[in-house]
């Protein structure tokens, strides 16, 4: 996607978001303690946001058309699924869902190792040294943090299956 296409798209998203904020403001319970009330700010903000997003769409469309006319448009790249990115997001969401049942120590060990795997370029773990470093860090950090917080600071991280 070219830069101007991207701007067009984000402008549209912002426009949709501002309409959403505006529409949802009507379900706010009105109060009369102050003359503006709780709907005023969200409405003003969404209107200004809507105008700005129109400016954004307009200017990026103009730029895009110009680029097209001048034939500067870059060739379209085929849309590719970025697996490490999607897996990282899945990993983070999984962490949220599993933290209470599984607990901090085991889940963080798994998270750390998987995340390192997803960051190191493919094939890095063929190198024994990197694999060992990653493994040791993944195991040592969560255990150390958990007990430091538990005994040192009296902050109890979710214990999960170990509780």
């Amino acid at each position: 996607m070219s830069e101007s296409r991207k701007d067009q798209l984000s402008g549209l998203v912002f426009l949709a978001f501002s309409i959403f904020v505006y529409a949802a403001s009507f379900s706010i319970k009105m109060t009369k303690a102050d003359s503006l009330g709780p709907q005023f700010f969200p409405q003003i903000v969404s209107i200004v946001m809507g105008i700005l997003s129109l400016v954004q769409i307009f200017s990026s469309t103009r730029k895009n058309l110009k680029e097209k006319r001048e034939g500067k448009q870059t060739e379209k790249k085929p849309f590719a699924v970025n697996l490490p990115l999607l897996l990282s997001i899945a990993l983070l969401l999984g962490y949220y869902y599993l933290l209470k049942p599984v607990g901090f120590i085991p889940l963080t060990i798994v998270y750390l190792f998987c995340q390192m795997y997803l960051l190191f370029p493919k094939g890095s773990f063929k190198e024994k040294k990197l694999l060992i470093i990653s493994l040791c860090t993944s195991v040592a950090v969560p255990i150390a943090v958990y007990y430091l917080f538990y005994y040192g600071f009296q902050i109890f991280l979710p214990a999960g299956i170990l509780g």
Binding site: I105, P106, I109, V139, I143, Q154, F156, I161, L162, G163
Partner: peptide, 25 residues
Amino acid sequence: LLVLCMFLGLANVALADKFPSKPIQ
């Protein structure tokens, strides 16, 4: 990893017969 987790788990199992046996929040 699993074995390690279980080992850590055992250390915390021996409770629940007497209240209170762990920190209260």
